[in-house]
Structure formats: structure tokens, C-alpha cells
């Protein structure tokens, strides 16, 4: 378990978190390679099913990174995302999973360091939780029996 390197999916809003990640890169601030970024036009575009599918495909943790509250480029996409994250947390709880495997994080485009520190912190949290409960089934870490 000590060598456990979690796979983390981060749905990042084009207008904030994705730009922040870019900035972290250009400033050469390192963040864990465990975090796989998926750019979305707005976190409001992230549905509960996308988060669930990430878990089904073997993710150990998922977070949604959107704009600061009140600053959504599309008015309230990040608020919707927050509710959907809560919806998935409830599902995970009901399934006997740790609800902290999914989180909502808010940041602005200029917060490159915060992006990196958050990525690190979330990765460490997931390391603490250990592999996803279905990991034992994912022999290659990516594929499940789900079509």
C-alpha cells in the first residue's frame, strides 16, 4: 500500500482551474502527476454521471474545480456542480464508500500555486483512504467489466 499511487480525475473549468493549472505549469510549480485533468467549458457541464463513470473506470478520487463562488462565467454553473458533487457523495455513502473520494474545489484563474497545493493535498487525502474499493477488480487499473 505504501507504493500506492492513486489515480485522480480533476474536472477543471476552462475559465479558472484549467488556467490556474496552466499557470502552475508555466511557473514551474510542481503538482502530483496522479492528477489527470479534464478540461470542461464550465463545471456546470459536469454531471453526476461523469463523476460516477470516472469511479467505474477505476479512479481513486475525483474532484471538480470551478470558479470562486459568485464568479462563474455562466452565472451559477459552479453552484450546480457543488450540488452534483454532494449528490455523488450521497451515492458513495450509501454504497459504503468514503464520500471524501469526491470533492468540489473553487479557485480563480490566477491561483496557480493554490491549484498545485490543492492537487497535492487531494492526492495525499486519497492516498490516506487507499485504493478505490473496486481497485482489486481492475487488474490493469483502467478496465472494468463494464462495457
Amino acid at each position: 500500500m505504501e507504493n500506492f499511487e492513486p489515480e485522480i480525475v480533476a474536472f477543471c473549468c476552462h475559465y479558472c482551474a484549467y488556467t490556474a493549472a496552466d499557470m502552475a505549469g508555466s511557473k514551474r510549480i510542481a503538482y502530483p502527476p496522479n492528477v489527470k485533468i479534464i478540461r470542461v467549458p464550465c463545471t456546470g457541464k459536469v454531471d453526476a454521471i461523469h463523476i460516477m463513470k470516472a469511479f467505474e473506470k477505476g479512479a481513486d478520487g475525483v474532484y471538480v474545480a470551478g470558479c470562486l463562488e459568485g464568479d462563474c462565467h455562466f452565472k451559477n454553473g459552479n453552484t450546480r456542480a457543488k450540488y452534483r458533487v454532494e449528490q455523488v457523495q450521497k451515492y458513495l455513502t450509501d454504497l459504503g464508500w468514503e464520500k471524501d473520494r469526491v470533492a468540489m474545489i473553487n479557485m480563480s484563474a490566477g491561483m496557480g500555486e493554490f491549484f498545485a497545493s490543492t492537487a497535492l493535498e487531494f492526492t495525499q487525502n486519497i492516498k490516506q483512504l487507499g485504493p478505490s474499493p473496486i481497485k482489486h477488480f481492475n487488474t490493469d487499473g483502467h478496465q472494468t467489466a463494464v462495457s
Binding site: 469511479f55 451515492y91 450509501d94 477488480f137 472494468t144 463494464v146
Partner: peptide, 9 residues
Amino acid sequence: SALNLHSLK
């Protein structure tokens, strides 16, 4: 999806 996660677990 939830039922899949459950059974895989």
C-alpha cells in the same frame, strides 16, 4: 453506475 460500483466492490 451506482449498482456497478456496488457489485464491483
